[in-house]
Amino acid sequence: MTRAWRKTVLYGLRYLLLGLAAFVMVYPFLFMVSTSFKSRSLALGDPTSLWPSDPTLENYIQVLGTENFARYFLNSAGVAVVSTALIVLLSSMMAYAFARLEFRGKRTLFTLIIVGLTIPTMMLIIPQFLLARDLHLLNSLPGLVPFYVGTALAFNTFLLSGFFQQIPRELDEAMMIDGAGPWRRFWDLIMPLSKPAVGTVIIFSFLGTWDEFAWALTVLNDVDNRTLPIAIALFQGQHSTSWGLVFAASLIAIVPVLIVYILFQRNFVAGLTTGALKH
């Protein structure tokens, strides 16, 4: 076997394995989309059939016509947008302080942030619940925001601080000569040059708050205050055999995440590859 032929075979095997891996990853999503367009009698039919023989929009019509579904969607949207905005603002300010400013205890504080990343979120449920009770934040949508922001700050601060350190300090010095203070350098220099990292933080933050289930289920009791993940879980319980309805509701819930990703996808890869590489 010649060297060129061997190289061709290796490339063929590589692409074959990658194709199989991609199919394994994508197939469950395709099956969910297909099932959402099937009638109830066909939903649990042949799992290898990805194209329904008689597609219907009945599942989506029923989901959108379900009482309070629109309210749950708006509840999740409001909480996710406000939480994401606060996460981006606060984590970028913290990251700027760690990356560009000098103050006493800087290294110790940053080490504590890194240590905080090792604590599983589920271990914080009880302490957070007690704190929310004492602050009278239980059973309210605004009460979700501080905890979503608090649990996301450590990772995003770490990500952004690594990116901020890659920006040449000579640019800071040039602005300082012109009389720019830390606040102006943050807004007019660091943030405009950090769009890839900020876009990555927006995607991660929105996805995390939009899909969050455990904490919302723990603190929300009022039916009108439920978020979309809770509504879908209860919807599945009410229609345990109507997988077409469940998948249709899940696909509707995916739409805002896809929109956010499409808007910031240009910055996503650059932010992942350049952030958090140095500190």
Rank of each mutant, 00 (worst) to 15 (best):
M123G: 13
G150N: 06
R14L: 15
T241S: 15
L245Q: 01
L42F: 13
A132N: 01
P256V: 12
T66E: 14
F164E: 14
I259L: 14
F268K: 02
L193I: 00
E173S: 09
R40Q: 13
W210T: 07
R71G: 09
Q128K: 05
A97R: 04
G271F: 00
S242R: 15
A95E: 09
V79F: 03
G208M: 08
A77Q: 01
V9G: 08
V145C: 06
F235I: 07
N75A: 06
A70P: 00
Q128S: 15
V260R: 00
A248F: 12
V198A: 07
E102L: 02
L159W: 11
S161V: 08
S91H: 06
A233N: 07
P146K: 02
D46R: 00
S39Y: 05
D46Y: 02
F29T: 06
L251V: 01
T8Y: 14
K38F: 11
V82A: 09
P28V: 08
P47L: 07
A77T: 07
S53R: 08
S76I: 07
L20G: 14
L171E: 05
S240R: 03
H239P: 03
I61V: 15
N156M: 10
A97D: 07
S140L: 02
W243G: 07
L10C: 08
M25N: 02
S194E: 10
A231Q: 06
N59S: 14
I126N: 09
Q265D: 04
L189F: 06
L16N: 00
W215L: 12
L272V: 05
L217D: 09
L86C: 12
R169M: 13
M1Y: 07
M122Q: 13
N225F: 13
F206Y: 06
A43S: 14
L153S: 05
V24S: 11
S240A: 13
I61S: 10
M122P: 03
I177W: 04
I167Y: 08
L131V: 14
T218M: 11
Q238G: 11
L189R: 04
L193A: 10
S140W: 02
A270F: 07
I61Y: 11
F129Q: 00
L50N: 10
R226T: 12
M32D: 05
S250F: 10
A85P: 00
F31S: 12
I259F: 07
P120R: 01
M1R: 10
S36T: 03
I262G: 12
D134T: 01
L64E: 03
I262K: 03
A152E: 12
A253Y: 08
A80D: 02
V149L: 10
W243R: 05
I203P: 08
S205K: 03
T209W: 05
L86F: 13
